[in-house]
Write a protein that binds this DNA or RNA. Sequence first.
DNA 1: GTGGTCTAGACCACG
DNA 2: GTGGTCTAGACCACG
Lengths: 122, 122, 122, 122
Amino acid sequence: MTDMVIKIDEYSDVPIYQQIRNQIVMGISSGELKAGEQLPTVRALAMEIGINTMTVSKTYQMLKNEGYITTDRKNGARVRAEIQKSGVISDENKAELRRIISEARLSGVSKSEIKNLVDEYY
Amino acid sequence: MTDMVIKIDEYSDVPIYQQIRNQIVMGISSGELKAGEQLPTVRALAMEIGINTMTVSKTYQMLKNEGYITTDRKNGARVRAEIQKSGVISDENKAELRRIISEARLSGVSKSEIKNLVDEYY
Amino acid sequence: MTDMVIKIDEYSDVPIYQQIRNQIVMGISSGELKAGEQLPTVRALAMEIGINTMTVSKTYQMLKNEGYITTDRKNGARVRAEIQKSGVISDENKAELRRIISEARLSGVSKSEIKNLVDEYY
Amino acid sequence: MTDMVIKIDEYSDVPIYQQIRNQIVMGISSGELKAGEQLPTVRALAMEIGINTMTVSKTYQMLKNEGYITTDRKNGARVRAEIQKSGVISDENKAELRRIISEARLSGVSKSEIKNLVDEYY
DNA sequence: GTGGTCTAGACCACG
DNA sequence: GTGGTCTAGACCACG
């Protein structure tokens, strides 16, 4: 069982279920959550964060649809052992990346500064 | 007057006024919209896209707040001559960038592929 | 929930959404509205004042942008617990202050009278 | 004839005729414009600033109404010799002052800092 | 139940 | 002619 901590920014416009989803995906990517590792139950995670169980449930459904986790009544939610590697960035993420780079450029951020961030986050 | 074309994805979760805002910002960044160049009037752009003037007005107000354009009754909306360069990427955009890179990584996209996108979009 | 009363001067040049915004900011500053306190819902305030919900919504959006309140679907609109203290007066407010003092001076109002007002309003 | 320079901020939301009016009032208050001193003709000032004569005309009309200047065809516009001293600050300016002080207070500006500004601007 | 978005239409001040 | 404001009404996602 993971002891990863989920932090909700209540001031953010990003919906709570999205914030949780993003943090779990980043946790898997960083290795903090290993393949096959069990996630907290919907109830437990909702309690811990202090939100509605429906919200956590929505998150797990989303992660399942995206292929990041598996869920069943016996084992609860687990990080999927073999996450499908499409090898490409989704069109939506490409569009977002383009927007971010445009804004950074207009703010006077150099290309190499952005690449340093890529190195840092990858 | 610009002949830039704004395209709305009506099925997107991104609000229309945000989509327009993003495209204008990217237009400025790419040089398609030059400093001082006049944007379409609120009415003209609303007509062209087939949406309400209020929605375009909201976009222009947002761009004005962000310092990308100026608006007044004499000159209409224009790309601002001297866009303030903060020199940094906003915390929100950093978080988004981190999320995108995490997802790309999990999809098997290499670091150099992402950097190539940075080169392409910058 | 606050029982603060918002009063609109319908003959004023100041837009309604601005008038509401100003009164809420002054309410926070005076302590009539406490940190964390819930503001009326968009619908309730619109009904109470007798104006459109869009206008109240615009006010809340503005207050949110300025960092005075938070809004979300769970908690509605609330006075922000930790309002950012820039420590400075904005250039716009400085210009306004200068104009007011110039006019007061020309009307024969003494410096100490103005300072008494500062004491009263602070 | 004054050689006072009027500066228009084209990015400001304050209408041009208001900006000119404010600067002339502040010029009178500071002594840069003396009692009886002649102001530029409508046409000359419009040319100098690069705006419509109607706008300057509106400004002069406003200043006349407020009792700051006199106008006639023979002498043009002149700073009034005896500006009426009501001895009080207008309700509008009081409301504005209160708003500014509230905002300054919330931004963490001390009372004495505001009073220093009063000293500076008076 | 809440705030967020959008429409169709109107009127206004500025210039 | 332009952007700014406002209404009356509607639908939506989040929780």
